[in-house]
Simulated scan of single mutants.
Amino acid sequence: MENYLSAQQLGTFAGIAIATNVIVQFTKSIFKKRCKDYVIRIYTFVITLILSFIFIPHNNTLKDIVLLIINSILICMTSFGNYEIFKDTYRNTKK
Rank of each mutant, 00 (worst) to 15 (best):
I42W: 01
I50W: 11
R91D: 13
C76Q: 12
I70H: 00
D64T: 00
I75T: 08
R34V: 03
N92F: 12
S72H: 06
F53Q: 14
N92I: 13
V66Y: 03
F80R: 14
I69N: 00
R91L: 14
I85K: 02
I70Q: 03
R34S: 04
P57N: 12
N60S: 09
L10P: 10
I73N: 09
A19C: 13
L10S: 09
F53V: 11
Y83E: 08
R91G: 07
T61W: 02
S79Y: 05
T44E: 10
I50Q: 10
L5F: 14
A19G: 07
A14M: 04
F45C: 14
F45Q: 08
I40R: 03
T48D: 12
K95P: 00
K33V: 01
R41I: 08
A7S: 10
L68E: 01
V24A: 04
N3I: 12
V22H: 01
K95G: 00
E2R: 07
R91T: 15
F31N: 07
K33S: 00
N92K: 14
T93D: 00
N82E: 11
V46E: 10
N82C: 13
A17Q: 05
S72A: 11
M77I: 15
I47H: 03
I54V: 15
N59S: 04
Y90W: 15
Q9M: 13
T93S: 05
F86E: 01
L67C: 02
I18D: 07
E2S: 06
F86H: 00
T12P: 07
F80V: 14
N92D: 15
N71C: 01
T93R: 10
V22K: 01
V22C: 01
F45N: 11
H58P: 08
Y83D: 08
T20R: 08
I16G: 04
K28H: 12
Q8R: 06
K32W: 02
C35S: 11
T61D: 06
I65R: 05
Y43S: 08
S6V: 07
K87M: 11
M1Q: 02
S79W: 03
I50P: 03
N71Y: 02
S52P: 11
K94H: 05
N21D: 10
L68V: 00
M1D: 04
A7M: 08
Q8E: 13
Y90C: 12
Q25E: 07
L67D: 02
R34P: 00
T78M: 15
S79Q: 14
I73P: 04
V66M: 10
A7K: 09
Q25A: 04
F80H: 15
I85D: 00
F13W: 11
N59A: 05
F45D: 09
F55M: 05
I47N: 04
S29K: 10
V22P: 01
F45M: 13
D64Y: 01
F31L: 15
A19F: 05
